[in-house]
Each structure stands twice: as structure tokens, then as C-alpha cells.
Amino acid sequence: MATTEITGANFQETVQGDGIVVLDFWADWCGPCKRFAPIFEQASEENPDAVFGKVDTEANQELSAALQIQSIPTLMLFRDGVLLARESGLLPGKAINELIAKAKELDMDEVRKQIEAEQGEAQ
């Protein structure tokens, strides 16, 4: 499974869809990002039912700023339009696969109820 290039133009459309979306925020000058790239690619091959996308933080500075990306690589995992995980640093492939497995097990109706309850408390 190849990864998809994610930009400000297709970000919302990509993460709002049904299913699992895993995004890698990276930059060409970032050594850890270069070491993480084959790990991310391998995870995409092992999880063909998920969408894997890469966001070049240099080419997409507005998107990166809006998402408060402060260190790279940063991995974000969405399911059905909900951000479930955000991890900075070089993750092993096993950790990515575990995040995806946990996301698949979630009852998204319950997750949405929890989010609504937390937002209600914050107001």
C-alpha cells in the first residue's frame, strides 16, 4: 500500500472519511524522519485497510501550525473523523500496528459520547 501525499487542500477530506487514517508529519531535513519513513511504509503494507498519508511540514506550514506540530516525526491516527492518537518521535512498526489494532477495537459511538461529555464539562 502506497502512502498518499496530504496537503492543506485534501487534509479535511482525508481525515473526515470512514475508517482509519494514519498521518506522518515529516520534513526532508529531519534525520529521524528519514529513518522512520521505511517503518511507516512497512506499516502501510501490513495494514491495507487503513489510509496512510505523509504531510511534508515544510511544504504545508499552515496545516502544520494549525495542528500544532512542534516536533517531527509526529504520527496522528484518526478513525471516522476523530483524532485518537498523536505520537511524536520515531516509533517502531510494532507500536504503529498496536495503535491501529486498538483503534479498530473501539466503539466509536462511545468515543463520541465521551468527547461530547468532556466538551460539555469544559464549557
Rank of each mutant, 00 (worst) to 15 (best):
M1K: 07
A2Q: 12
A2C: 03
T3P: 00
T4K: 15
T4E: 13
E5T: 15
E5K: 14
I6A: 11
T7W: 09
G8K: 11
A9V: 11
N10W: 06
N10P: 07
F11Q: 08
E13D: 11
T14Y: 01
T14W: 03
V15E: 05
V15F: 04
V15N: 04
Q16C: 10
Q16Y: 05
Q16H: 12
G17P: 10
G19V: 06
G19K: 01
V21I: 04
V22L: 10
L23G: 06
D24T: 08
F25K: 00
F25C: 04
W26Q: 00
D28R: 03
W29Y: 03
W29E: 00
W29L: 01
C30L: 07
P32W: 03
P32D: 05
C33K: 00
C33D: 00
K34P: 01
P38I: 09
P38K: 11
I39M: 05
F40Y: 13
Q42K: 15
Q42P: 00
Q42E: 15
A43W: 06
A43K: 04
E46G: 07
E46K: 15
E46T: 06
N47W: 06
P48T: 13
P48A: 12
D49V: 09
D49K: 13
D49H: 12
A50P: 05
A50W: 04
V51H: 02
V51N: 01
F52V: 09
K54M: 02
K54G: 01
V55H: 07
V55I: 14
D56I: 04
E58L: 03
E58W: 07
A59I: 04
N60Y: 12
Q61V: 10
L63N: 08
L63D: 09
A65M: 14
A65E: 10
A66F: 00
L67D: 09
I69R: 04
I69W: 06
I69N: 01
Q70E: 12
S71L: 00
S71Y: 03
I72R: 00
I72Q: 02
P73L: 02
T74G: 06
T74P: 03
T74R: 03
L75P: 00
M76T: 01
M76P: 07
L77E: 01
L77K: 03
F78T: 02
F78I: 04
R79D: 06
D80N: 15
G81Y: 11
V82T: 14
L83C: 08
L84Y: 08
L84S: 08
L84I: 05
A85V: 04
S88F: 02
S88Y: 01
S88M: 05
S88R: 00
G89N: 02
G89Y: 04
G89I: 04
L90P: 03
L91I: 05
P92R: 04
G93S: 07
I96H: 06
I96V: 14
E98T: 13
E98F: 02
E98P: 00
K102P: 01
K102G: 09
K102M: 06
K104V: 07
K104Y: 07
E105K: 15
L106F: 12
L106S: 09
L106E: 14
L106C: 09
L106P: 12
M108K: 10
E110S: 15
E110L: 13
V111R: 10
R112T: 13
Q114H: 12
Q114I: 11
Q114L: 14
I115T: 10
E116N: 13
Q119V: 09
Q119P: 01
Q119W: 08
G120N: 14
